[in-house]
Amino acid sequence: MSKKNRITGALFVGTTAFSAFLIIAVIIILLVVIIIGGKDTFSWEFLTSFPQDGMMKGGIFPAIYGTALLVVIMSVAAVPFGTITAIYLTEYASETSILAQTIRFAVRTLATVPSIIFGLFGLGFFIKFVGGGMDDVFLGGQLKWGQPNILWASLTMSLLTLPVVIVSVEEAIRTVPREMREASLALGATKWETIRRIVIPGSRSGIMTGTILAVSRGAGEVAPILFTGAAYYLATLPTSLSDQFMNLGYHIYIMATQSANVDQTLPIQFATTLVLLMLTFMLNLTAVIIRSRLRRKAK
């Protein structure tokens, strides 16, 4: 091979390697900057106390609490429905049926719909249509459910995370060997018994991965809850599903863009970002580890 050729090759490979390392470098810089910016403010007290002095000081406990509550309600809605959809796609639908393909297309579409659209949908459907309808029917038009609250925000978020659950669970179900299904059926188990006793227990780790990824996604998304239930500041924690709530991501956004004195609260902002980043980072890391184990098992 000619020398010129070899140099071109080295340059080309070098460029691709540079691109990969550039991405890794940016990830590291981002992590480091956020950690350095937030580490001084970050403390147990910061995590467990309320904001003070018009959010100029104090902690972010209500935002953590609100985020946790949001992802719990969201998971309760998204995980069962996502799991069942995945079961349908793997166990009941034939690969080539139009219905299965339509569902797959819908799931992928759902995964690519901009998150802000879910917010609009939550407003138009959950708050105005369902909530408003509930108020009209049960409360004689008195306003209770027809306004932003944690229930509607969580349900909106569950729609966004549904594809995450479906994809993870489906992947896990496919790792349950066909031989085990056959063994169960050959013993006279029905299809549903096989699913319930063999397939679902066999894909527990996938269901867990799906839940973790969904929680991570739901904890970090802000756009869907901008106008479906997140609040700027609340003096009390939400106690009912019809209450509004504070949220880590929303808190960052508000503090960074609308705080009365952005510079003064900068440490709080960094620390809040650090908390959110650590939370999603840990969750994703767990999911990546479980998933890579699952993939190795499948091989």
Binding site: E179, M180, A183, S184, A186, L187, A189, E193, R197, P201
Partner: peptide
């Protein structure tokens, strides 16, 4: 009943494997 080419125990205990059929 059927026995397969590749042994295909469930990822359960021996007891649970054998008791599977009677249980269902």
């Amino acid at each position: 009943g059927m026995v397969f080419q590749k042994s295909n125990p469930f990822t359960k205990s021996i007891y649970e494997n054998v008791a599977y059929g009677p249980k269902i």
